[in-house]
Nucleic acid binder design. Structure first.
Lengths: 208, 208
DNA sequence: ACGACTTGCAACACAGATGATGCAAGTAGC
DNA sequence: GCTACTTGCATCATCTGTGTTGCAAGTCGT
């Protein structure tokens, strides 16, 4: 049994997808097709079978098993694949250096771009794979650092609970990502950030 | 095969749990134990087996099958059981008659009470059971009516998108319900409503 | 105390999914 | 064009979960 596409190999020191040796171009395309089909299929039904995934990818089920030894290995690779993009999306927004509000918008937009396409894969944060968990945990820290900077800059209130706010932020992104309908990520990001910062209430409500 | 505990029977006109005839007291307790164990078990792992549920309930798997013909019937009954409480919780808050802000707090607190205990069951809104779907859809309408009243009363901004705001509200309740840790529903409701109305931003931020 | 009901246990049938293998046909890359 | 790689197909073994049944032991309600 060769294991040509296993995401973070335990024997590897970094998160780059590793395989025993380079795949031929056609096999490479097949692997990609399988991962994309897996995302599409599993986001609709997380309990979808290998057969359904194979069909969606346009290959035979045995081919899927040739590339991913087990179902778990496939999902693991999928989670890794998306986690790489996730980390890159966050990184590209310079969340630790850009002005807080700019960083918030940019990070949101970038993450939404990944989340819309890789929703299922990104939901596998509590993966068996320690590398995936590590990246998600790292992003969580980055997010909370950004929120603290936003507090210091007076963008976020001083009295908010940061872990709670982060969870709300994640939930907003999740909800926005369901709106795949036509909306571009910039519009969705505006909606998310606006909702997070201003809420839905009036500035000075006549109570009751 | 008798089907002693099937939630909303198609031949019944209302949502009251119906069974062919009353169960003996011990059997009644068993049914309750199974439903509670199912909630506990499935909220941890939605793919949990009947065996695991039976074990959690302290009964044999065959007993579970005696009370619920199929796995689907069990989940359906669970969804119905929780949906009854959900509808009652919303109703008790007088969402259509109390002042908007009062109704919002009270509904939130009541729903959180149910959601904390019946999180999995309440996530089965898109149940095969049309009665369950009808109740959830009704609550959704009630919620949006309340939001419109809140707008008219100046509690919610006039420019918000109501469906989006409702989804955000649901997401906040969901997140808050994860905080089972010690917090009472009144505190959590305050947090949810406060976050929904005010967001996390400062009233007049020095932009950037 | 009696009868009806309920439960646990052992056993079975069955369906569906996973994973492996050998072979023949086709394709990429040198 | 040659070789190594890749794929589809047919097939098989295995496992797990679901749902059923019969029976013996125990319990509820009257």
């Amino acid at each position: 049994m060769t294991l040509p596409y296993a995401f973070p190999m335990k024997t590897q020191r970094e998160s780059t997808p590793a395989r025993s040796r380079p795949l031929r171009a056609d096999a490479e395309r097949t692997v990609t097709a399988i991962l994309e089909a897996a995302e599409r299929t599993l986001s609709r039904d997380p309990a979808a079978t290998m057969e359904q995934i194979a069909e969606a990818a346009g290959v035979a089920r045995t081919t899927v098993h040739r590339r991913f030894a087990t179902r778990e290995a496939l999902i693991d690779a999928l989670a890794g694949w998306a986690t790489e993009r996730f980390a890159a999306a966050v990184d590209a927004a310079h969340p630790d250096t850009a002005p807080p509000l700019v960083a918030l918008y940019q990070t949101t937009a970038n993450v939404l771009g990944v989340k819309v396409s890789w929703g299922f894969a990104m939901s596998q944060a509590s993966s068996v794979n320690p590398e995936v968990a590590r990246v998600h945990s790292g992003v969580r820290d980055t997010c909370e650092r950004l929120f603290r900077r936003a507090q210091e800059a007076g963008v976020l209130r001083a009295d908010i609970d940061i872990p709670w706010t982060r969870r709300v932020y994640y939930a907003l992104i999740h909800e926005a990502a369901q709106n795949r309908n036509e909306q571009d990520t910039a519009t969705l990001a505006t909606l998310v950030v606006d909702t997070l910062l201003r809420g839905a209430g009036t500035p000075h409500p006549d109570r009751l």
